[in-house]
Write a protein that binds this DNA or RNA. Structure first.
Length: 928
RNA sequence: GGGCUCGUAGAUCAGCGGUAGAUCAUCCCCCUGGCACGGGGAAGGCCGCGGGUUCAAAUCCCGCCGAGUCCA
């Protein structure tokens, strides 16, 4: 195993007089200019020394700092790149949120598949790290939202067999320049280089690794310089700290990260990072919450923050532990300190969370119960709780809007709307929750037991009610709550048994087609042609008897982008094979055919034109409907999935509330206006970075394509990266009919629609249903709604009337008792009667008789054989036992409480005999 | 994407195989000089929809629709 030590020996250090030494406290190796330095500089080995003693010549606000950084690197031949969205799942599917600037370039750029937008480049990338959520506000240094300033260089080895296989070649720069830039930046800002240390700290992440420096200045970690150059490899010669082995890659990448907030903080020397980042917001929130400290109190808070900053506090729990020490050092009671500091901690967190929400919602995340939407919902609810606890009296949408304004988002109205909707939803959840907890607390108040853990887990997991809320409500009713220390792991326990379905291994194509050339895709050349000539390159016989045919070129569109494959035929002079499926694997298009056209032969391909045309209409219509939905519902609307068919298509779209009927009509109108405009639908193949720069990541609503060139489809103002086939003018769609909308998940709405002939068919189908309903009701179709309503009302009235009549009839029967047999049972009268009617009537009759003081045994042969037995109180007859015995005689069963029972069986023929035996049965039961 | 919970009167919920209930709201009557309260009564239900099991389903099973919630 090679050690990485050599990797850190740079000429730069040699030339500038740096020395390598080992920290006397933690044992890490680091580089320094200071001949006397013994410790690495990072807490806990050293303390923060910039608080009240700013680290640079000038103080920088956030924007100033960002500009200083970016222009510094611009002056040194880096291209400035616009930041990417915080929703990283807009361009990659392995993560939800952007957590570092390098996320922007993974995986396609780092692997060398796609060129970077510029090389080298500099960027200030907004990031969100949810894992820090508990620390925000409390530790003084953690923020959930932050900007990672960075300079990146993408390099590829030239001493390999085929340097051209990568999207970039040669070396922009590597370690020497990276370190030099970093220290030059410090010097330019007026930092004392003697106080800078570079700690050797190998980096590992996402299957890659490499040497790295943590750059520390006055106790604060201000930059990380990562030299990504290894990839995971079981046979690799470098063993990294994660225990895996790594070997060198052909590409090697400079990945740096400079935390903008920390740089601004160090430049200002405020006690906490929040005061440097959100001075205005904090002023607003403190005055709004009515927090007004005396000079003495302000001094205590200031000293406490300063002390906390100096300590090694990396987690919120550490703060709690440190609170006593801090209070002692300042000379105040711990409790007093807590009262002063805790509201401020909440306010810091509110400021940070509001900014996080502004980023998330500004970048188009819609709150939901899945994905990034869920994360946004969690942040919003947490913020709302903090706002309520600390007594801030401003609406949430205003707090978020303040940040959105600062971040210069243009969709602020939508953001406010979303926040208001979410807050309202949360209020409803809390209402529901407290009602539930109240009734539960009352239940346990009666028994005197504490509310057990499994009830708590259930409340949290299924109803979103936090244990502290349960405690609060339960306490009002004097009920204890059993909250275990490891509550959240008890919740996790519940999820542990969930099965992890293993993905079925698909297609054994990979090795079989690896040597075949990529198929020429004729369907992009002329999307309206259906006939073509080709040469058969290879034929594989399938296990099911069909054949997989590979051609040199094809007009057949393979399944992709939610568009199903073309069907059609491949013919030679001898054979005509039906094509029923077309798939693409690594650029090789495979046609599934029911006959073997013969390898090496010429074939004539014929695509099923009707099917293709219908699919194209639906595909273009999908773009049109998406565009119309965006127009009507708002800019946040984005595709969350789509499927096209020959008779209909569906488009799933992110939206935060149900789509109203009026909105559906409006979308339909806008969409059909686009059809009427008959504008050209164009395709082009621009460079991907040029396309991204011009149109943004909204291009990738249908998925993220690979490669340096991407295919763009433009329909009116709507531009999307799309591999599907499209009609050439919007007029060719014919018509668009939205058939239904439904809520797929919270935050996702499905629009189902039909285009072209299918739209006509869909309309006809709906009309048919209406006509049939009209026929059935014998009214004009237009009168169906009114008539249906009238009929439904009349039907309900009749039900009530029947019930009333049945009761009257029952009473008449009971008082008349003419056709019933009366039996005397030790002073109590029993009436045995056959009434061939339905159960309701039987019950009513039995009830009426029983109310008159007699035992009732009613039998019916209307539907099999059925009995109802009712016994007045004190009769000594167990109705359940009687019914059970009688029902047994007609081949069934029955039962019920002793005063009223019912039952029956299929054998109607035995009913009379059973009723004849009833007196005996009654006597038997009474004596039993 | 997966797990869990819930759909019963206008609202909130109970019932969880055997006659559909409570509270609030609504309407009427009584009490009062009037109001609040109190008392008496009435009206209000495709028990989400569709299948299945059963002599019998609001209740058990399956599917669908709708709502909520936790996790990745």
């Amino acid at each position: 195993m090679s050690d990485l030590e050599e990797e850190y020996r740079l000429d730069y250090f040699e030339e500038h007089g740096f020395r390598r030494t080992e920290c006397s406290e933690c044992g890490d190796h680091f580089w320094t200019l200071d001949p006397d330095r013994e410790t690495c500089g990072e807490p806990p080995c050293d303390e923060y020394s910039f608080i009240d003693d700013a680290g640079f010549d000038e103080e920088f606000e956030l924007g100033e700092m960002r500009e200083a950084f970016l222009s510094f690197f611009e002056e040194r031949d880096h291209d400035r790149i616009d930041p990417y969205p915080v929703a990283a799942n807009r361009w990659r599917d392995d993560v939800l949120l952007t957590q570092a600037s390098i996320y922007d370039f993974q995986p396609l750029v780092t692997s060398g598949t796609t060129p970077p937008p510029a090389n080298p480049l500099t960027i200030s990338q907004p990031c969100i790290r949810m894992q820090d959520i508990d620390n925000v506000g409390v530790t003084g240094r953690h923020t959930m939202a932050f900007e990672m300033m960075a300079h990146h260089a993408f390099n590829a080895r030239e001493d390999i067999d085929d340097p051209e296989q990568y999207a970039y070649e040669g070396e922009a720069y590597w370690k020497e320049e990276t370190v030099a830039y970093c220290l030059e930046l410090f010097e330019e800002l007026g930092a004392d280089p003697q106080e800078v240390t570079l700690i050797e700290d190998p980096w590992v992440g996402g299957g890659n690794a490499g040497p790295a420096f943590e750059v520390i200045y006055k106790g604060a970690e201000l930059a990380t310089l990562v030299f990504m150059q290894f990839e995971q490899d079981a046979d690799g010669e470098y063993e990294m700290k994660d225990g895996n082995c790594y070997s060198p890659m052909d590409t090697y990448i400079v990945d740096t990260g400079y935390g903008l907030e920390r740089w601004a903080w160090v430049s200002q020397g405020t006690p906490t990072v929040y005061e440097a980042v959100y001075p205005d917001t904090i002023d607003f929130l403190t005055s709004n919450a009515g927090i007004d400290h005396t000079d003495e109190e302000a001094e205590i808070v200031h000293r406490a923050a300063k002390l906390a900053g100096r300590m090694d506090i990396d987690e919120a729990e550490d703060v709690e532990a440190a609170r006593d020490d801090i209070a002692a050092e300042i000379g105040v009671e711990t409790e007093r300190l807590r009262e002063l500091v805790e509201p401020l901690e909440s306010i810091y967190a509110i400021a940070d969370h509001s900014r996080t929400l502004a980023y998330m919602l500004g970048d188009g995340i819609v709150p939901s119960n899945v994905g990034t939407g869920y994360l946004a919902r969690m942040v919003l609810r947490r913020t709302k709780r903090l706002v309520d606890t600390v007594g801030v009296d401003a609406p949430m949408d205003e707090l978020v809007d303040m940040q959105a304004e600062r971040l210069d988002y243009s969709n602020r109205d939508t953001i406010r709307d979303i926040v208001r909707t979410e807050v309202e939803k949360y209020r409803e959840t809390l209402d529901r929750g407290s009602r539930r907890v109240e009734s539960l607390a009352e239940e346990y108040a009666e028994t005197g037991d504490p509310i057990p853990t499994d009830e708590l887990v259930e409340l949290y997991d299924s109803h979103g009610i936090q244990p502290d809320m349960v405690e609060e409500i339960a306490a009002e009713r004097g009920v204890d709550v059993d909250v275990p220390e490891d509550f959240y792991s008890a919740v996790a326990q519940r999820h542990e048994e969930e099965d992890v379905a293993s993905a079925a291994e698909t297609a054994g194509y990979a090795d079989r087609i690896a040597d075949l050339p990529e198929t020429d895709r004729l369907y992009y050349e002329d999307q309206n042609r259906t006939e073509f000539e080709a040469v058969v390159l290879e034929v594989f016989e399938r296990e099911d008897g069909d054949y997989d045919v590979v051609l040199d070129q094809t007009m057949f569109y393979p399944e992709g982008g939610g568009q199903p494959p073309d069907h059609g035929t491949l013919s030679t002079e001898d054979v005509t094979a039906d094509v029923t499926d077309v798939q693409v694997h690594d650029g090789v298009i495979v046609h599934r055919a029911d006959a073997d056209p013969g390898t090496g032969d010429f074939v004539t391909g014929q695509v099923d034109g009707t099917r293709r045309r219908r699919l194209m209409q639906h595909h273009t219509a999908t773009h049109v409907v998406g565009h119309a939905a965006r127009h009507v519902l708002g800019e946040h609307v984005r595709q969350a999935g789509a499927q096209k068919r020959t008779d209909s298509a569906r488009l799933d779209v992110r939206h935060y509330e149900p789509v109203a009927r009026e909105e559906v009509k409006e979308i339909e109108r806008v969409a059909n206006d686009l059809v009427t405009d008959n504008s050209q639908v164009t395709q082009e193949w621009p460079d991907r970075h040029a396309a991204e720069a011009e149109h943004g990541f909204d291009l990738y609503q249908g998925g993220i394509p690979q490669g340096e060139q991407i295919r763009l489809i433009t329909v009116d103002e709507d531009v999307q990266a799309c591999g599907g086939t499209h009609v050439s003018r919007t007029g060719d769609i014919g018509a668009i009919k939205i058939r239904s909308t439904e809520r797929i998940q919270d935050g996702v709405v499905r629009l189902s629609f039909a285009a072209g002939e299918a739209a006509i068919e869909a309309t006809q189908e709906t009309e048919d249903a209406l006509y049939e309903a009209g026929d059935a009701l014998d009214v004009d179709p237009m009168d169906v709604p009114e008539t249906a309503e009238r009929f439904f009302e009349a039907w309900k009235d009749r039900g009530k009337e029947i019930e009333e009549l049945q009761e009257q009839l029952a009473e008449a029967r009971a008082s008349g008792a003419s056709d019933g047999e009366e039996v005397d049972l030790d002073g109590t009268t029993a009436v045995i009667q056959r009434v061939d009617a339905e159960m309701n009537e039987l019950r009513a009759t039995a009830n009426a008789i029983s109310e008159d003081g007699s035992v009732a045994v009613i039998g019916s042969g209307a539907d099999g054989a059925q009995f109802v037995v009712a016994a007045p109180e004190g009769s000594g007859v167990d109705a359940g036992a009687v019914v059970s015995e009688l029902a047994d005689r007609v081949g069934g069963g029955g039962g019920g409480p002793s005063d009223f029972a019912q039952g029956g069986g299929p054998d109607a023929a035995a009913l009379e005999d059973a009723l004849a035996d009833a007196p005996d049965v009654l006597r038997q039961v009474m004596s039993a």
